[in-house]
Nucleic acid binder design. Structure first.
Lengths: 130, 130
DNA sequence: TTAGATGCAAAGGGTTTGCAACGTC
DNA sequence: GACGTTGCAAACCCTTTGCATCTAA
């Protein structure tokens, strides 16, 4: 089992790849990018490190209806827009409404850690094409 | 391919099972329940019909970090609370904030269809246990 | 009668894992 | 040197699909 106490080339490169993009890549895309620097990298290692980095809070795992996950190198909570036409995932430049947490705590009688908002629709690019 | 023009025993039972619960069951749970009435039902048929019913807007497909989907027989948009401890999914009895849609349309310049809110934390039951 | 739906089982496809070799501390 | 990590490939597991059979209309 992974204890995650050592910094390896692989972990470093994977994190670099993730930090270097504002997109929300799949594990496979990260794998392909990282292989440019580490040709012998294996997909299993990518998944293992993405899991570790996720536990560390260094990234977010998203899964918007697809069968596969997307990863977001921006661990600060923010909202996402998913285009129903081209399936792109975009960040929404909008403040997170922290008071939603309090509201839910009141209604549910629970303890809230965070929330996730996903907005679905048609992105500007796809709107132009129609 | 499924054209979904006929009402079959299978489709009826699957929809009944889904409507009869307020939980957010997996395809497999639905399958097990429906088999009590239709012992020869196959899992493939469950998936096919869930897909059809989803396209018809009769249910919502949710996937909250798990590798498998959960289905919600309440097609009216509502919010969900996910317990990080016991992984239960609960409905949040709270009005949907439609104005969020407008706000996002302004910020993004896109067309918004709907949004999904998931709140993560510890549910009342799990809070008591600690 | 006939096209759509089912049951079965095999295929798909993203993700996980066992194990020997490797590399960090 | 010890033990966490990797590469490889096989295993996993939920979901989809091809096809012969069945059935709702």
């Amino acid at each position: 089992m992974t204890k995650n106490t050592r910094m390896t080339k692989q972990k470093q490169v994977i994190l670099d790849v993730l930090r270097s993009t504002k997109s929300h890549p799949t594990a496979d895309w990260i794998y392909e990018q990282a292989r440019k620097q580490l040709p012998n990298l294996s997909l299993g290692t990518v998944y293992r490190n993405l899991g570790v980095l996720k536990d560390m809070g260094e990234l977010l795992e998203l899964n918007y209806g697809s069968t596969y996950s997307r990863f977001d190198g921006n661990p600060v909570n923010h909202y996402h827009f998913v285009c129903l036409n081209c399936h792109k995932v975009l960040d929404i430049e909008m403040d997170v409404e922290e008071r939603l947490n309090n509201k839910v705590e009141e209604v549910m009688g629970c303890h809230v850690k965070h929330h996730r908002l996903e907005v679905y629709g048609t992105c500007p690019q796809c709107l132009c094409k129609n």
